[in-house]
Design a protein around this nucleic acid. Sequence first.
DNA 1: TGATTGGTGGGTACTTGTGGGGAAAAAAGG
DNA 2: CCTTTTTTCCCCACAAGTACCCACCAATCA
Lengths: 148, 148
Amino acid sequence: MASFKGTYVHQLDAKARLALPSRLRGQIPEGGTLTVSAENCLTFYPASLWSDVERELSTLDPLNPDARDTKRQIFGSAEDVTFDKQGRIPIPVHLRDHAGLTKEVVVMGVGDVIELWDATAWQKRHVRIAADASDIMRRARGGVPLSP
Amino acid sequence: MASFKGTYVHQLDAKARLALPSRLRGQIPEGGTLTVSAENCLTFYPASLWSDVERELSTLDPLNPDARDTKRQIFGSAEDVTFDKQGRIPIPVHLRDHAGLTKEVVVMGVGDVIELWDATAWQKRHVRIAADASDIMRRARGGVPLSP
DNA sequence: TGATTGGTGGGTACTTGTGGGGAAAAAAGG
DNA sequence: CCTTTTTTCCCCACAAGTACCCACCAATCA
């Protein structure tokens, strides 16, 4: 299982291409799937993990309206992406809009996925997360503090 | 399980490289992961210990927003590091900034991890810890967090 | 004291991120 | 159906960053 780490700031060029950092790219030579996140950013799933996402979503109850909206949100915005010979991926317009990407893009390894943020949007969120870090981490585990 | 001890003062060179003391390096030939600490210093996890951290994080619920922020906080600031043939590791800019590293760096073995401090920052904290040592150690067993 | 190890500095070659030209493919329009 | 426009991809080029390598010096140890 790939483990993505680190924060990188890259430029979206005039042709809406984004170079993934080679540290991350090296772990996913075959590309993967890009789609919207619950937050205003994009999530890149390596090919192996995306099939898990599909399986997970297919178990949702078709009679639940929220489940149907969830599938619309995820599948409807998803795009398979591969790298050009320079290691760049094209970002479709609707995904660019969802994350508000303009020029400076924060590429972040978040364990099993990679997230793309508009630089200023991430900066604002980051200071908020850093300030509330201990509360956030406690709630993440339902009240139990994270050990390290 | 490795046990790191001792305090060393090393220089961050013009290329942002730091030589780990060979006493410590000998226990971790394969390198490890460097990330931010809750205090203004950096924490180096040997590979075996970092995998425990990842395992812990992988149990978090992906549908919980706080869990996602937690993973962003931890993975986003982490970097895998390996040694060059001189036993040095490069310190990425965002990590250097978090710990305020400039030239003199205190490298400290702290049991299962290694910490990196800016020399003057550590000195200030050290005199405070030394002054309150008995109180601090008493509270350490009561689960009450150390005030920053 | 000679030899080895460990920390530091710096030169050189390569890798990587970025921009842009031009060919091929796809889409639009008459 | 053919032409025009747009998009997509491959290629080259350049600059900045990174990594590898060798060299020096100080401290340690036999």
